[in-house]
Design a protein around this nucleic acid. Structure first.
Lengths: 325, 325
DNA sequence: TTTGACATGTCAATCGTTTGACATATACAT
DNA sequence: ATGTATATGTCAAACGATTGACATGTCAAA
C-alpha cells in the first residue's frame, strides 16, 4: 500500500509538505495542495492510522465488552454505542464474553495491549480488584465497582417496583420473579430487591427463580419456566428480568392453555424492540438504551479530556403497558 | 503505560532480552525469564500492539460492516463472526452502515486507514467499482460482485422455493411476498425470483411488496403491512423475507382478527432465535448463520495466506415448519 | 585445550507518520 | 532597500517494538 513517501515523490514535493496538506498546518499553496490530493487519489493512498496512533499515543478505538451481541438488549446497546462513538471519531471494537471470566479477562488485556482509548464493560464476571488495577478510562454498565470507576445504569430499583406494583394492582395473587444470576454483582439485582419489598409490603404470595450464568440460553429458559409452572401451576403473575424471558413465559403459557393476560399477567424488562412486535405485545420496563449508550461515550470522553465526571449515572425508567397485563 | 524499556530496566537486562522472552526466540535462562515475567507483572506491562502492528504490517483486526447489529439476523451474524475471529487471534471492528452509502464508504476507508487484515461486508449500497478498487482481503455477504471477490451466501433461490412451495401446498389462494429493496443488488433477491417462478408455475394469485432502504424500521413495516391488507384483505398466505417482518405480519393479523395459521399462513426467513420464541412460532427458512460466519473468517484467512479460495460459497438452507403454517 | 552450546549484550535499522527547528526563496508592501 | 507574509525544503527525533549481525562471556564435554 502507498505511503506518504510515495505520494510525496509522485507529487514532486517533500514528505513534510504532504504531511502539512494532510494535517492542515503551516502554509500551503492551492496548487500544491490540489496536486497532492490528486496524487493521493491516483495512488489510492490512505494514511496509516497505526503509525499515527503510535505517535499520538491514542488509537481512537473504544472497546465494548458484552455477554453477547446476539441478545437483543446488547445488540441495541452495541448499535447505539457504535453510533455515538463514530460521531466522535471513535471506532468500536466488540467482544462477546459469553460471561466467561477467562474470556473477559483476556479481552480486557487485549484491549490494553491495543491501547484502546476507553473500555465500556457490559459484562461483569470479574472481581472488583481486577477493575481497580486497570488504570484505563472505563465505564461499567449496570455495575458499581467503587467510587473511582464511573458507571452507567438506569433506575433498577424503581423498575422492579413499577413492574411488581403493576402486577399487585392488577390483583395477582401469586407472583413469580425470574431474575438473572444473583451471584453476579449487578445493579440489576436491585430489581429483585424491589420485587421482594413490594410483595412483602402487600403481603402477596411470591417466589423467585434465578437463571444460570449463561446468557440467552434458550433451552435453559424453557427448562426453568417449565419447572416453575410444574411446581406452581397457580401462578397468576410473572415479573421477568428481560423481555426475552417474558416472551418465553408467554409461549409456555400458550402451550399450557393459560390465557394472557386473562389468566396470568406478565411483565418483562428492557423494552427491546421485540417486546413491541410479539403477540401479545409485552408490558415492560423501558430502559433508555440510547441515552445510556450516548452517556457512556461521554463518560469515556470526559476521562480522556481529564475532566471531572460524575461516577453514578442513573437514568429513569418508564413503565410501558402493553398486551400481557 | 510501561514500555519494554521500563521492563528491561527494572529486570536489569537489555531490551533485546525482554523481547526474546516475549517472543520465545533465542536462548533465555529460566531465571531471567521468570525475572522478566515478574517485572512485567509488577509494572502491569502489556506489549504495545500498535507498535507491533506497524512493524509486522498486520493489525490482526477484521472489520465487519452490517446495516445494523440491532437487527437480530446481523446480531447473530456479528456474534459468530466475532467468535471465530477471536479463535484465530483476530479482533473485530464493528460498523453499522444503516444502509447509508456515504457511511458505508467512510467505514471502508476508515478500515483501510486502520489497515484491517480483512473486511467482511454485510451491507451493500455501493457500486461494483467501489469494491474492485479496494485491493484488500474482503468477503461479501449475500452479494456477488465479480469473479475476483469471494462471497458467502446461502441458497436463496432454494429458500424462496421452499417457502413458496409450502404455502402453495397448504392450499393458499392468494399469496403476498414482502421482500427487501430490489434495487440493492443482493443475492437475497433470488428469493423473490423463486417466489415468482413457483406461483407462476402453479398459477396462484400473488403480489409482491418491497420495503424501503431502511433496515429494521418498525413503523415502515407496520405501514406497508397495513396497506397490504387494506388493499388485499383476501390474502391467505405471506412469504416474508425476514422473520421480523413475518412477526409484524402475525401481529397485524392478530389485530385484524385473522387466525394464524387457520385463516392465513405465514413463512419467514433466516430462523433467528426470535422465530422460535414468539407465539405462534414462525415457520421459516433457516440460514446456517454460524457456518456462514465461520467460513467468512476462513475466506479472509485464506486470502491472507495467499491460498486460492473458492469465490462462490453457498450453503444449503432448511425449511423449519412451525406454528404459522 | 579446544569446541560448541548456552546466555546475554550492543548497535542499528525498520515500520509510517508527525513535528519542531531551521534554511531558503519569492512576492509584495512600505 | 527592508521587512514580512507566504511557500517549501532539509533534517532529525520520536512513538514502541522486532530483528539480524555481531561481540563477549561462562561452562561443560571431548
Amino acid at each position: 500500500m502507498a505511503t506518504i513517501h510515495d505520494v510525496a515523490e509522485r507529487a514532486g514535493v517533500s514528505v513534510t509538505t504532504v504531511s502539512r496538506v494532510l494535517n492542515n498546518r503551516g502554509y500551503i499553496s492551492e496548487s500544491t495542495r490540489s496536486k497532492v490530493y490528486q496524487c493521493m487519489e491516483e495512488l489510492g493512498y490512505q494514511p496509516n492510522e497505526i503509525a499515527r496512533s503510535l505517535l499520538k499515543k491514542q488509537s481512537n478505538i473504544i472497546g465494548l465488552i458484552v455477554p453477547n451481541v446476539s441478545h437483543p438488549f446488547f445488540g441495541e446497546l452495541a448499535s447505539f454505542v457504535e453510533y455515538y462513538a463514530y460521531e466522535h471519531g471513535f471506532k468500536m471494537l466488540l467482544c462477546n464474553s459469553h460471561l466467561d471470566p477467562v474470556k473477559e479477562k483476556e479481552y480486557i488485556e487485549m484491549m490494553r495491549r491495543n491501547r484502546v482509548d476507553g473500555i465500556i464493560m457490559g459484562s461483569h464476571t470479574l472481581e472488583v480488584e481486577d477493575y481497580r488495577n486497570l488504570h484505563h478510562p472505563i465505564v461499567t454498565f449496570d455495575r458499581q465497582i467503587d467510587s473511582e470507576i464511573p458507571y452507567m445504569s438506569s433506575d433498577n430499583y424503581r423498575g422492579g417496583e413499577l413492574a411488581t406494583e403493576l402486577l399487585v394492582k392488577k390483583d395477582c395473587k401469586k407472583i413469580a420473579h425470574i431474575c438473572g444470576n444473583l451471584e453476579l454483582d449487578l445493579l440489576a439485582n436491585q430489581r429483585t430487591q424491589a420485587f421482594q419489598d413490594v410483595v412483602s409490603r402487600h403481603e402477596v404470595e411470591h417466589l423467585i427463580v434465578q437463571t444460570d450464568m449463561n446468557v440467552f440460553d434458550q433451552q435453559q429458559y424453557e427448562r426453568i419456566i417449565a419447572e416453575l409452572f410444574r411446581e406452581h401451576p397457580d401462578i397468576d403473575g410473572v415479573f421477568a428480568t428481560s423481555d426475552i424471558i417474558a416472551a418465553y413465559v408467554v409461549q409456555h403459557c400458550y402451550k399450557l392453555g393459560k390465557r394472557v393476560p386473562h389468566d396470568i399477567r406478565i411483565v418483562g424488562y428492557d423494552d427491546v424492540s421485540a417486546a413491541s412486535w410479539v403477540v401479545p405485545s409485552i408490558t415492560t420496563i423501558q430502559q433508555p438504551i440510547e441515552e445510556m449508550s450516548k452517556q457512556a461515550i461521554e463518560l469515556i470522553r470526559g476521562q480522556l479530556a481529564e475532566e471531572t465526571i460524575r461516577m453514578a449515572n442513573i437514568l429513569p425508567v418508564t413503565l410501558i403497558e402493553r398486551g400481557t397485563t
